[in-house]
Design a protein around this nucleic acid. Structure first.
Length: 315
RNA sequence: GUCCUUUGUUUUCUA
């Protein structure tokens, strides 16, 4: 069943729910029985595609098969409801969970913190963040990372940095994700040099930056109009054998368009395509926006036609 | 004591 679980989960991640469901059906026809993890994977996968109804069906099936939803099940569903904006649904589930005697854990708490921050209720998030330890919750790296991002998104740069220090003082060592978060925040605040110095800190800690790290910094430089530096980072990425991805491409194209260099953006785009690298809807949207701004509507429409050919549905 | 599942980080449009 572990084999099937791994495959089903991977299928959701890299293919689609229909492939995953097929695998589940194959498993059901065999002598292998689904376990609680299988059900949790199904629920998560369906939530991930925004199919809340289907996820609920999967939940019912789980119960029918004799499994009790656990905290992972509930956390998954609560996150799913929040993701589609159904806070009432999420709240109902939370109550149901508590009624069944399943305690909120740090994951539940972090999920709530995240959506409070996202829905511009930073104040409530802060209150919860400060109150939780008194209730026995051990704030972890995700809690801190979530709040740091929340502060940055509300332009509270100093507070974000204060939390960063507080976290370290507590002996929680930032992982790459948290470093990426603070780099993004510093970039957004226009503190690109401080963001850059965090990259050195990453290396000194023995961590390795990833594509997100580079993309974030490249984006930071682009936003400042420093395209030279942005492309230097792009080259550095290649040197260090990281693979610039569609996001990298989108960032660079956007940066070029912003500086009224749509022609160069188009060149980059063509180069990217000819190398067989992936592009996506956002690539097209970015280029089309750049072209429209310059009044080159016919070229924009040409790209629009290409989108349909490539089955990248315009949105 | 080992495998699988839940939370945080990067890109596009409205001045």
């Amino acid at each position: 069943v572990v084999t099937y679980n791994t495959l089903i989960n991977g299928s959701f991640r890299w293919q689609s729910s229909s492939n995953a469901i097929q695998l589940l059906e194959i498993m059901e026809k065999s002598s292998v029985r689904a376990n609680a993890v299988t059900h949790n994977i199904m629920i998560k996968g369906l939530c991930g595609e925004g199919k809340i109804e289907e996820a609920n069906k999967a939940l019912r099936k789980m119960v029918q098969s004799g499994f009790s939803p656990d905290s992972i099940t509930y956390n998954t569903l609560i996150n799913g409801y929040c993701k589609v904006g159904d806070m009432c649904g999420a709240y109902k589930l939370l109550e149901e969970m508590l009624q069944k005697g399943i305690k909120m854990d740090i994951v539940t708490l972090n999920t709530v913190l995240h959506y409070l921050c996202k829905d511009r209720m930073l104040g409530k998030a802060i209150a919860l963040f400060r109150f939780a330890p008194r209730k026995g919750y051990m704030l972890d790296e995700v809690s801190y990372g979530t709040m740091i991002v929340g502060y940055f998104n509300n332009e509270k740069v100093d507070e974000a940095l204060k939390l960063w220090d507080e976290m370290k003082k507590k002996g929680i060592f930032p992982s790459l994700v948290t470093y990426n978060s603070i780099i993004a925040g510093l970039c957004k605040a226009g503190k690109i040099n401080e963001a850059f110095s965090k990259l050195n800190e990453i290396l000194n800690c023995g961590l390795l930056p990833d594509e997100t790290t580079y993309n974030t910094l490249i984006h930071g430089y682009c936003m400042e109009g420093k395209l030279e530096e942005a492309f230097q980072f792009h080259n550095k990425m290649l040197e260090n054998s990281f693979k610039p991805d569609a996001i990298t491409c989108n960032i660079l194209i956007h940066g070029l368009c912003k500086e009224k260099m749509v022609d160069k953006a188009l060149k980059l785009f063509n180069k990217w395509v000819s190398k067989g690298k992936t592009i996506d809807v956002i690539t097209y949207n970015t280029l089309i926006a750049g072209l429209c701004r310059e009044g080159k509507i016919d070229m924009a429409l040409e790209l629009f036609g290409e989108m349909e050919e490539k089955k990248l549905g315009p949105d």
